[in-house]
Design a protein around this nucleic acid. Structure first.
Lengths: 96, 96
DNA sequence: TTGTCATTTGGCAATATAACCAAATATTAT
DNA sequence: ATAATATTTGGTTATATTGCCAAATGACAA
């Protein structure tokens, strides 16, 4: 593991780590369709507001999603446009 | 999160979790080139044999790699052929 | 300003993960 | 069979993650 590689590896593992929780992966998939605010996720997932917010912040920090504050709400949308491709790519790979 | 979705999500998060450790991601990238036995990883990484073995077993269980016992050695090789594509896809996505 | 709603942040307890050591297993060589 | 090498498994400790609660922030409304 060369030194220059280290940064790159950590950035990549950050993304994988962000996607490695069922709730987070599910939220990301919801954002394939359209942006959603935090409260919409809270309603559906029946998790604490703080829990949902923290999950979203992990995804944001990994540059998977980005936020957009509008009025009282914060809307999240997909930023890493390659994620849908990655997931279907993996599903094909696994389901053989 | 529908019930049918749950299995699929867990299988996918299993893959992401497996890839979300720098050492494991590095090992997977080594296997893009050619198969390697456990001892070769141990030599380069300077980690305990048991540590390396456990990392590889996590990747194997996620169907990312597969093993091939030959003689005294166990050789690991890439199984999920889409991983190289996924990584370069992500690198492009992040580096903009 | 005060109040209210949406969200984030800090702190805590429970659970999961990581790395090492030691012991167990497996395969080949003697 | 015994020994030597390669790998896996079990156990332990340290660290990280998860989910809740309570408190803090931020924006709009009255």
């Amino acid at each position: 593991m060369e030194a220059m590689d280290k940064r790159r590896l950590e950035e990549l593992t950050g993304v994988f780590k962000a996607l490695s929780h069922p709730t987070r992966l599910w939220m990301v998939e919801q954002l394939f369709e359209s942006e959603q605010c935090v409260c919409e996720f809270v309603d559906v997932l029946k998790l604490d507001f703080s829990t949902v917010s923290k999950h979203l912040s992990i995804l944001k920090q990994a540059h998977v999603i980005e936020d957009d504050k509008r009025g009282k709400n914060v809307y999240y949308k997909l930023r890493a446009q390659c994620i849908p491709t990655i997931i279907s790519c993996l599903e094909n790979s696994l389901g053989n």
